[in-house]
Amino acid sequence: MAPTKWSRSGSAAPHEAAQRDEEQRLRELGYQPVLARRMGHFGNFAISFSVISVLSGCMTLYGFGLGTGGPAVMLWGWIGVGLFVLFVGLALAEVTSAYPTSGALYYMADRLGGRKWGWYTGWLNLLGLLGAIAGIDYGAALFTGAVLNLQWGFDPTPESTMLIFVAILLVHATLNLFGVRLVSV
Rank of each mutant, 00 (worst) to 15 (best):
G128K: 05
D137E: 12
P156R: 02
N44A: 15
D155H: 12
G179K: 01
G145E: 03
L170F: 11
I79K: 07
A36H: 13
V54S: 06
S56T: 11
I133K: 05
V180M: 11
T96P: 01
I136K: 02
E22V: 14
S53W: 05
V171I: 11
S50H: 00
Y62T: 08
L105R: 03
F178D: 04
E23D: 15
A98T: 07
Y107E: 14
G145S: 06
V34L: 12
H41Q: 00
R115C: 06
L83W: 12
E28H: 10
R181L: 04
Y106Q: 12
M1Q: 10
T157M: 00
V166K: 03
S9G: 10
T144Q: 11
G69Y: 09
R115W: 13
A98W: 14
A18F: 10
Q32H: 10
W78L: 13
H15F: 15
S160I: 04
P14E: 07
I136L: 14
N149F: 14
S50G: 07
H172F: 13
L55G: 08
A46T: 02
K5C: 13
W152R: 10
G80E: 03
L129N: 09
A2N: 15
L163F: 14
E28V: 08
I47G: 06
S7G: 14
T96V: 07
N44P: 06
E23R: 09
L169R: 05
L175K: 03
P156V: 03
H172I: 01
S53Q: 05
S53Y: 01
S56V: 09
S48N: 08
E159D: 10
L90I: 04
L169N: 10
L75G: 02
A72P: 03
S9T: 12
N44T: 01
F64R: 02
F42A: 06
F45L: 00
W119S: 09
P33N: 05
V88F: 12
L148E: 04
H41T: 00
R27Q: 13
V185C: 03
G122R: 04
L55S: 12
D155K: 07
Q151F: 14
E23H: 09
L148C: 07
I47S: 13
V185H: 07
P33W: 11
E28R: 12
R8N: 13
A109P: 10
G80R: 04
A2Q: 15
S53R: 02
F64Q: 05
K5Q: 15
T101M: 08
L29S: 09
W123N: 06
L86V: 08
V51A: 10
F178V: 11
L150W: 11
G82I: 08
I136E: 02
E159L: 06
T157R: 00
V166I: 13
G139Q: 01
R181Q: 10
K5G: 09
G63R: 07
A2D: 13
M108E: 11
G145K: 02
S184N: 04
W119G: 07
F87R: 01
T101L: 15
L148R: 02
